Simulated scan of single mutants.
Amino acid sequence: TVMLDKTGTLTRGEPMVTDVIPESSRDNILKLAAAAEYGSEHPLGEAIVKAASMEELELPSASGFNAIPGQGVEAVIDKKNIVLGNLRLINEKKLSLNGFNEEAERLRDQGKTVMYLGTDGKVEGLLALADTLKPDAFASVKALKDMGAEVVMVTGDNSRTAEAIAKEVGIDQVLAEVLPENKAEEVKKLQEQHRVVAMVGDGINDAPALAQADVGIAIGTGTDVAMETGDITLISGDLGGIATAISLSKRTVRTIKQNLFWAFAYNTVLIPVAAGVLYLAFRNGGIPSGLHFILGDYGFLNPILAAAAMALSSITVVTNSLRLKRYRPVKIESNSGGNTMAKAIDPVCKMEIEEKSAVATSEYKGKKYYFCAKGCKIAFDKEPEKYLAG
């Protein structure tokens, strides 16, 4: 069983704000959210702050910052208690959803992560963020399945968002709404079902799960803690390395078994001959004339040939092992699950998006540009040459 973390493993780990759904003022929701997340090291928090920066919004000062692992943050802004996080946090704080249910479900069905911003006992707005899948995610999952591995995705996202992402990459089994500290427990549950588990992750919160797994595979573009904890590190962050590591390890074990078989078979046959077992048959002479050099007069193996045979045994094993040098990594085609929709690169954030699903577009010098978020469009329209030059 191969368990894959979502953010930073299956996806690029660079989420972008794609939608801001306010009760009244869009800019106000984005400003409050960015102020609450200012200084946050969480990818989602950084994405919100970046979106506000692109739109050149002036952020109010925040105090009383409190990060709630796996749920969101709290802060005090303009003497108001601001809550920003997932549905679990909103329910725990007993905030009214204020009619945002259907909009949130629509966004989740698109595979987006939805964050609620609440104050004064109710939700004031929604922010949706999306992270693009790595180009080789679908093909890598398919390669693992073709090798007979069961692939599981684990994430802290709600089940609908998680299932939408899993469907896009071809994963059937999803563990959603798993808090960071519970990932290791999920690995242990699979091990209790007598499964050999390989955990693939990149973050600090993946480290316990990497340690718990039978094989921990860290993404090289992730944190140092994850790389130190993992048994294997994929230096490039290429998911194809997972299939390659498993394939190469299977071939290595197969080669070891072949070597052991030939070594045991070889020695089982020739050691008794070298020890003189044939003397029992030829002690009264009768050695065929053509075998005198090999077995002498009484069936004892010529010491020169015994030494040569011992060296040949080692040469056979080493030569068989050297065949591993001819191994070629599993070839992974970079695609998006066979999706043939036209793709475009957002000139501002450099995020790859489908032209059909672009949030906004602009035309400049006769060419059309596509954007993942309104903030990117606003920034581009102000200084198009700046982003085209980059």
Results as ranks from 00 to 15, higher is better:
Y364M: 04
R326P: 01
A373W: 04
A342F: 05
Y327M: 14
A311L: 14
K331S: 15
N339T: 02
M341P: 00
Y370C: 11
V318P: 00
K367L: 03
T361P: 10
T340L: 08
F371R: 02
A344L: 02
K325T: 14
A358V: 11
A360Q: 12
E333I: 15
E352Y: 01
A358W: 12
Y369W: 06
Y369T: 12
S313E: 08
Y370F: 13
N339A: 01
V318C: 03
E333C: 03
R326H: 07
A360I: 11
S362C: 13
S336T: 05
L322Y: 09
V318R: 00
R323K: 14
A342Y: 03
A344E: 10
M351D: 11
S314T: 09
Y364S: 05
G337A: 15
E363P: 01
A311Y: 07
K356R: 13
K350M: 08
N320A: 04
T361M: 06
V359D: 08
S321F: 02
Y327V: 04
F371C: 04
K367V: 13
Y370E: 06
D346Y: 11
V317E: 11
E363F: 03
V348C: 05
V359F: 12
E363D: 11
E333Y: 12
I315Q: 03
M351E: 10
K325S: 11
M341K: 14
E333P: 02
S336G: 07
